[in-house]
């Protein structure tokens, strides 16, 4: 639908069809991404709505300068960052970068922390944003080039961030309570 580099104006039914196809294809990934930024299911749904709205708004201007996947993930990460800033959580410096400090742990999250899959998500949530972005995109299967394109950084930088992020994730997953030692 969006391929071919054409600049023709799409009709609303075409846009809706394209939007549906994007959500069907990338919906699960967007859900995981939103979970890695949000606190609780309500916050996650709000963020997903913001992302979907931004994708819908940007769709008519998509000109194939990048792949659809890059387009979707750029929007998603940008909306997630704006969402974090509005949530008013203070940033704290923990040595290797600024992290979002969550003063009110979500009981929903605490309850599921013991589950294996959630331990990884929780560990990613604890990473500084710059690392979390690279990790989530890597786990979604994006190449270094695509991640560089989404975030606007060099591929070398992607590699360096991923190495540091993996080190921190390992430490976090090894510790019994999921925090870095």
């Amino acid at each position: 639908m969006g391929g071919g580099g054409e600049r023709r104006r799409l009709s609303r039914p075409d846009l809706e069809e394209w939007f549906d196809a994007l959500l069907a294809l990338h919906g699960p990934a967007l859900g995981r991404l939103a979970s890695s930024y949000a606190r609780g299911s309500g916050d996650r749904e709000d963020l997903l709505q913001e992302i979907a709205l931004a994708i819908w708004g940007a769709l008519p201007r998509f000109r194939n300068e990048c792949s659809e996947r890059t387009f979707v993930f750029r929007i998603a990460h940008n909306r997630a960052i704006a969402h974090i800033a509005r949530r008013r959580l203070p940033l704290v410096d923990k040595g290797e970068g600024l992290e979002i400090e969550d003063p009110s742990p979500d009981p929903e999250r605490a309850l599921s922390r013991d589950q294996q899959g959630d331990r990884l998500a929780e560990a990613i949530r604890r990473l500084p944003i710059a690392y979390a972005q690279v990790v989530t995109l890597t786990l979604e299967g994006l190449s270094y080039g695509e991640i560089a394109d989404v975030l606007g950084i060099s591929e070398t930088n992607v590699g360096a961030r991923l190495t540091r992020a993996r080190q921190r994730l390992r430490e976090s997953l090894r510790s019994p309570d999921g925090t870095r030692s």
Partner: peptide, 24 residues
């Protein structure tokens, strides 16, 4: 192997999606 294992674990999580089209 480590990254592959994490990727499998990460992608196994598929949180339910709200009706985004209706919300939009």
């Amino acid at each position: 192997r480590e990254l592959d294992a994490w990727r499998r674990e990460w992608q196994a999580e598929s949180p339910p999606l709200p009706d985004l089209k209706a919300r939009v």
